[in-house]
Design a protein around this nucleic acid. Structure first.
Length: 763
DNA sequence: TAGTTGGGTTTTTTT
DNA sequence: AACCCAACTA
């Protein structure tokens, strides 16, 4: 009995076909991760390949971590030297070693979207580009697309002939790259592009990696872009042992440059490629699969395949119709609660998927009201949140003062009376001497033009220097706490009456936890390593599988995941498929949306619920939308309710026309298929344009003490938190203006928070 | 310089 | 609705 016996025939072929190029067309839920992990195990255990010679590229850090773990479970020790990473992490690893050969310093920093925008703003100012007509964002996205296609500024210039707009973009592109280089920084796209550049320019380096990576595997291959493909092609060129795994039906990242041709044309590029299809689905019931197949069948130009399962039919899909998004949210929350009550599902078995991040808010509000533990994935990346970026900017500045952007970010946070004028003068001085902004600050006395403002800069420099010297003696955890304490960052938040101050503080606590965790995992944790690790994490990487909370996320984020119970919210034409793709004259766009629908539906193992709201507030105006065409593409016999037939459809109606005074709301009473039961109080008419009862002041205030007095619990007590669930208080200490409470939560682990914000309830 | 206000814009999706 | 930015006031 070997570990390979449990694989089906196709999977076995995928595992045992180790030499030469292999295209593994793996339908949703067909066990591709199993094939990949077994393939790695087979290479190592049966063929005697050194783990060191294997590279597996995944889409997210989370997927990489899981794969590594599963390989470890299969072969025991020895898995740590396999490269299992994302494209971006691999490239950083390579560039940290060789970036100097491209004229960068090996300690380059990585710029995120915010940083890019800041640089571009500056570039536009210098080039006198009118950002009213040509937005920074548009320029950046043009540059990003160019980089995805490996188009250099020079090549772009050739294409820009006679096109004024493009010529402006070329100028900006060139200037932007110069600025990045000057700051010794790379953006996300550069990580790939520069690595390809390095490989092409330096055959010695390329040769060494080719020699090392004898077996290369790429997961989610349908979502690779041209630059990534080129990277892989170069790496695999010597041995040609390249196994790509993907599903053209799940290609959903065209907007990010994913080139679906990479998978469709694989056999042209590698004529000797073996093509293996995995069509048996081990995840979903037949009904779910039939529905998903019926939808995706409407796409043209796909590699035909039909998923099947030997699981039973299962439940029919649920279709539910609502008047508005609030009722939709209420139903979903109620339904989850019902399933939990009836022991049909636990919280962690449920996921709510939607097209746009904005849809999360209403759902979230409802989940809070009903006290259902949940987690929202995505939106703004954790590390892109203001408070986190602020603190990270401190850490970056302490680590090395070379990141001008970071220094400028925090120089006046919290307020130190240092304004734009002073900053500009310091920058001028820095430019003149060709030194960094921070070094210019250190010489503030020498800068004649700033006059008495120099006195404001000095304490800042002294503070940073003191952090630096203290770093010799204490760890990262002490450092971050010291920064928070010394700057008064949290104290300021605490005192502020900002709506989301509580949330910010929670995020900061989470950051501290992450630093602590980082220090636990690494033998010799350095600040630089922490900052690097943090630069490349996606929001999805942070979700823990065992936290037993309902997950709320976009359809995009859900790729690669599965849940027994899935709710698809906002199944409306104009929302999903999005308005943009409906009105586009490129028919490919709607096909990509359909693939997204396919991805969403195939996340469900047992139970799939499709929700439709007739009226929905989008960007401040009320829209009336028809049922999503994707719902209508599902055979009716697979659903428990028949979606209403399409009728006249005002695409969007100005909210002003929907004041209750004019009574028009009532025209759109539900045509009543199954509506969830609700109490009379809850059944009040929805007021379009208003925010409804859910948003009443105090909604987020939960229960429990809000004042700064001593809480009614103490160390040792059991308490309940609205989000983290139950836990034990391990510490309670008086702070400057509030008690600081440390709780060891059963599910969420240890958290430190301010009592006023934590709103813990003794139980 | 800091804080406020009013006007204009917007992402659909993210490593 | 939410966010960002410029312009204005204190």
């Amino acid at each position: 009995m070997s570990i390979y016996d449990t694989l089906n025939e196709q999977q076995k072929r995928g595992v045992f076909t180790t030499e030469g190029p292999v295209l593994l067309l793996a339908g949703a839920g067909s066990g591709k991760t199993r094939v990949l992990t077994h393939r790695i195990a087979y290479l190592i255990e049966e063929l005697g390949v050194s783990p060191w010679n294997i590279m597996a590229i995944t889409f997210t850090n989370k997927a990489a971590g899981e794969m590594k773990e599963r390989v470890e479970n299969l072969i025991g020790m020895g898995a740590e030297s396999i490269w299992v990473t994302t494209f971006h992490s691999s490239c950083v690893r390579i560039l940290r070693r060789y970036a100097d050969r491209l004229g960068y310093d090996n300690s380059f920093t990585i710029y995120d979207t915010d940083d890019q925008k800041a640089v571009m703003k500056d570039v536009c100012k210098r080039l006198q580009i009118d950002t009213k007509t040509l937005k920074e964002r548009a320029i950046l996205s043009a540059i990003s697309s160019a980089k995805d296609e490996l188009i250099s500024p020079q090549e772009y210039e050739l294409k820009a002939m006679g096109d004024f707009r493009k010529q402006k973009i070329v100028q900006a592109y060139k200037e932007y790259q110069l600025a990045l280089k000057k700051n010794n920084a790379m953006d996300f796209d550069d990580l790939i592009v520069k690595t390809v550049e390095l490989f092409k320019a330096d055959s010695e380096v390329l040769g060494s990696y080719q020699k090392r990576f004898k077996y290369i595997m790429v997961d989610e291959y349908q979502d690779t872009n041209t630059a990534q493909f080129e990277l892989i092609r170069l790496l695999a060129d010597a041995n040609r042992n390249l196994c790509v795994v993907g599903d053209d039906d799940q290609s959903i990242y065209k907007f990010r440059g994913a080139n679906i041709r990479n998978i469709l044309d694989f056999e042209q590029v590698y004529p000797e490629a073996e093509v293996i299809r995995l069509e048996q689905n081990y995840r979903s019931t037949q009904n779910v699969l039939d529905a998903a197949n019926a939808v995706i069948r409407n796409n043209k130009g796909r590699k035909s395949k039909t998923l099947w399962t030997d699981k039973g039919e299962g439940n029919r899909l649920h279709f539910r119709q609502f008047d508005n998004a609030y009722e939709e949210a209420e139903f979903i929350a109620d339904d989850v609660a019902r399933k939990k009550r009836e022991a049909a599902a636990d919280y962690g078995d449920c996921a709510v998927l939607y097209r746009t991040n904005a849809q999360a808010r209403i759902l979230e509000e409802r989940f809070i009201i009903e006290g259902i533990p949940y987690d929202v994935v995505g939106g703004t990346n954790f590390y892109a949140r203001r408070e986190i970026k602020d603190l990270l900017a401190y850490l970056k500045t302490i680590d090395n003062g070379r990141d001008d952007l970071a220094v400028k970010r925090i120089i006046n946070i919290p307020k130190r009376g240092i304004g734009a004028a002073t900053i500009a003068k310091v920058q001028d001085y820095a430019d003149m001497r060709e030194i960094s902004f921070y070094d210019a600050l250190r010489q503030a006395d020498e800068i004649m033009s700033i006059g008495k403002s120099a006195a404001k800069l000095k304490p800042f420099v002294t503070m940073i220097q003191s952090f630096r010297s203290k770093l010799e003696f204490y760890g990262l955890e002490d450092l971050i706490k010291d920064v928070i304490e010394t700057t008064g960052y949290v104290a300021e938040l605490e005192a502020s009456d900002e709506e989301d101050a509580e949330n910010r503080i929670e995020n900061i606590d989470e950051l501290i936890s992450k630093i602590v965790a980082f220090e636990e995992v690494h033998d010799q944790p350095t600040l630089g390593e922490f900052l690097e690790e943090v630069a490349l994490v996606a929001d999805i990487d942070r979700v823990e599988d065992d936290s037993n909370r309902v997950l709320l996320m976009t359809l995009h984020s859900a790729k690669g995941l599965e849940f027994p119970h899935v709710y698809l919210a906002g199944m409306e034409d104009g929302i999903f498929p999005s308005y943009m793709t409906i009105t586009s004259d490129d028919p490919d766009e709607i096909e990509e949306e359909r693939r997204l629908a396919y991805v969403g539906m195939t996340r469900a193992k047992e139970d799939l619920t499709l929700c439709y709201a007739k009226m929905r507030m989008v960007r401040g105006e009320t829209q009336m939308n028809a049922v999503s065409r994707f719902v209508r593409e599902i055979p009716e016999e697979l659903m428990d309710n028949r979606p209403p037939a399409p009728r006249f459809r005002p695409m969007d109606v100005p909210s002003s026309q929907f004041t209750p005074a004019e009574g028009q709301v009532y025209k759109y009473k539900p045509t009543a298929t199954l509506m969830p039961k609700r109490t009379a109080a809850e059944n009040k008419p929805f007021i379009a344009g208003g925010i409804g009862s859910l948003n009443a002041p105090g909604i987020n205030k939960g229960v429990g003490a809000v004042t700064g007095g001593k809480p009614d619990y103490d160390a040792g007590d059991r308490v309940r938190h609205i989000k983290y669930g139950e836990g034990t208080v391990t510490d309670l200490e008086p702070g400057p203006r509030d008690y600081k409470v440390t709780v060891d939560f059963d599910d969420a682990g240890q958290k430190i928070m301010y009592a006023a914000f934590a709103r813990l309830n003794k139980i």
